[in-house]
Structure formats: structure tokens, C-alpha cells
């Protein structure tokens, strides 16, 4: 199995912007909507290249979502991106009724996701968006792990899908480690490291941390499998159940509330089909706060150290479950 290395840090939001631009070059139906933070969410690349296809609608997210629906119903492929806290939470009713009930192909970018937004503090740290987006019928939820994967994911979301898509990405530069010619299929997880002692299932920026934790555990004699779940809905039941059968213990890792989020989605698959002991790394039912991204990740336990500790303890505990 290939060993992943960091080729250099790059923000996933840049990947989003580059992916939208590339998709827009290929398909003239692609249109963009901005809610005042166009540059911040990297939609400026598109807006500059295609000004006649970009609509600035101001700080009015509810309207943005409805306008996107109208554009989609009349044949366009709208991309609307803003901070995840606004994209997913401010407009939940518009997403539920206008976008999802009408089942229109609107691509929603949830930018600045997670606690790593940093000093802006709790108001701007989207930690509930996965839970809320994945519960909506017809919605696809994507959470790519690095900028390269985000470029691919957003192009697939725009070019290969029919219904609504929510794609989550972050603000801070993070390690680039996946290959630009990687096998990427919406709805299919990626096994990044083999191992049969325990499985670590991670999503988004935490995939890199999960890999680092697994590499270190390997030296301590625990062979952890690492799986990148970039599509939270529809989730890849097959790869999850295979991990449950073969490794008999599962840890999930996400930069999001544990309750209702990615880990819950995995648990739903596990408890129904093949119960095995699980543990969860994520935010434990609290708001974030101001601080530097790395300080916050440490304070809230979103680090490779936490992953290692939980993995070790679940690995030793799993024997008692069997």
C-alpha cells in the first residue's frame, strides 16, 4: 500500500474555487452566486473569469438559496458558496423545501468548516453542518480531505450529479497528499492504509491526522486500517462493513459535533448490520472559541494524539467485546 506524504500545504477552499472554475469552463450552464464573501470562499476565480454568469446577491443567504433553485429549475447549474454556518444553518428551510424537496441540482459550498477557522470564534465555526445536511432527503454530502481531492469532488458534484450537493471544506492550508489521478467516486470510500487490528474512518481535514496516527501506531505494533470517507451521504456501507468484519473495531474522526455527524452515520450502518465496538473523535456537544487553529485543534482533541489514544484503548478493549 502506498505511503502518503505531504507535498506542501494548501487550503481546501482554493481547491473548491479551482474546481468550480474548471467545471464552468467545460459547461456554460454553470452559474455562480455570491453573498459578499466571494473572495474568502474562493469563488472570485469564477466571478473574474465569467462575470456574466456570476450574481452578487449581497448578505442575503435565504434569497441566494431560492435564486439558486430558480436558476436550476430553468436549466442552469448554480454554485452557491458561503461559510458553512450560513450555507447550511441560516438557510436550512430554504435548502429543505426549495432545494431538496424540488430535488434541483444546486451545488452548495460550505466553506470555513470546522473549528480550524480559528480566531473568529464560535459564531463562525461550522460544527453542525454535516448533521443537518445529511438528514435532508435527496441531499448528497461531500467532505473531501485535501485541496486536490476537493478539486475533483467539486467537478464531479457539478458535472456528474443531478440533485442537491453540499460540499464541505476549510479555511486553513492543510497537507496535500492525495494524487491528482486518484480513483474518486462519489459514494465510495478510499482505503488509504491497510491493517486488520482496528479501523480508523475519517473525513475532511482529519484524514491526514488519522493517517499520521496510524503510521505511528504501526511502529507500536497496532496495524490500523485507515479509510477516507469523502462522501458522507450516500455513505459507502460496503467499505464500512468490510472494516467491521475484518478489524472488529471502528474509530471515526471528524472536525464536527459527534452527535448526528459523520460518526453517527457510520454507527447507523454498523449497529444495523454488524455491531462492533466503536469510538468517536470529534467535538463533544460544545461550541468552539477563539484561538489559533492548531491551539483549538489541540484543546478540542482533534489531533493525531487523541486518535492514537482512543485507537489504542479501543484496540485493547475490543477483545472483551468478542
Amino acid at each position: 500500500m502506498m505511503h502518503f506524504e505531504n507535498r506542501g500545504n494548501k487550503a481546501t477552499r482554493l481547491g473548491f474555487g479551482e474546481g468550480v472554475l474548471e467545471a464552468a469552463r467545460r459547461d456554460s450552464r454553470v452559474v455562480g452566486i455570491g453573498a459578499d464573501i466571494t473572495g474568502s470562499v474562493s469563488m472570485d476565480l469564477f466571478a473574474k473569469a465569467f462575470p456574466e454568469r456570476f450574481f452578487s446577491l449581497g448578505i442575503a443567504e435565504q434569497n441566494c438559496m431560492g435564486v439558486a433553485t430558480g436558476l436550476a429549475l430553468s436549466g442552469k447549474v448554480p454554485v452557491f458558496s458561503t461559510y458553512g454556518v450560513f450555507a447550511a444553518l441560516r438557510t436550512t428551510d430554504q435548502i429543505r423545501i426549495s432545494v431538496c424537496y424540488n430535488n434541483v441540482h444546486v451545488v452548495i459550498g460550505g466553506a470555513h468548516a470546522g473549528i480550524s477557522v480559528g480566531p473568529d470564534g464560535a459564531t463562525h465555526q461550522a460544527l453542525e453542518d454535516i448533521a443537518i445536511m445529511r438528514v435532508l432527503p435527496n441531499m448528497t454530502v461531500l467532505s473531501p480531505c485535501d485541496a486536490t481531492q476537493t478539486i475533483i469532488a467539486v467537478q464531479r458534484a457539478i458535472g456528474n450529479m443531478k440533485g442537491p450537493v453540499y460540499i464541505r471544506f476549510g479555511r486553513e492550508p492543510v497537507p496535500e497528499f492525495t494524487h491528482e489521478h486518484q480513483e474518486f467516486q462519489i459514494g465510495k470510500g478510499q482505503q488509504l492504509k491497510d491493517g486488520n487490528d482496528i479501523s480508523i474512518l475519517a473525513t475532511g481535514h482529519m484524514v491526514w491526522e488519522a493517517l499520521q496516527a496510524a503510521y505511528q501506531l504501526q511502529q507500536e505494533g497496532i496495524h490500523a486500517r485507515v479509510i477516507n470517507i469523502h462522501t458522507i451521504k450516500p455513505i459507502d456501507e460496503e467499505i464500512i462493513l468490510q472494516a467491521a468484519h475484518e478489524t472488529k473495531a471502528i474509530i471515526t474522526v471528524e472536525e464536527h459535533q459527534i452527535m448526528g455527524g459523520f460518526g453517527s452515520a457510520v454507527a447507523e450502518v454498523i449497529v444495523k448490520n454488524h455491531p462492533v465496538p466503536m469510538d468517536f473523535v470529534g467535538i463533544n456537544d460544545s461550541f468552539g472559541e477563539s484561538g489559533k487553529p492548531d491551539e483549538l485543534m489541540k484543546l478540542y482533541g482533534l489531533t493525531r494524539e487523541t486518535i492514537m489514544t482512543k485507537t489504542q484503548s479501543l484496540f485493547y478493549k475490543k477483545e472483551t467485546f468478542i
Partner: peptide
């Protein structure tokens, strides 16, 4: 009305 705006833009 937002949806109508989107269609009118198209």
C-alpha cells in the same frame, strides 16, 4: 419570490 428571481435571471 427568490425562486422567481432565479428563473427571471435565466
Amino acid at each position: 419570490l427568490s425562486v422567481a428571481v432565479g428563473m427571471a435571471l435565466t
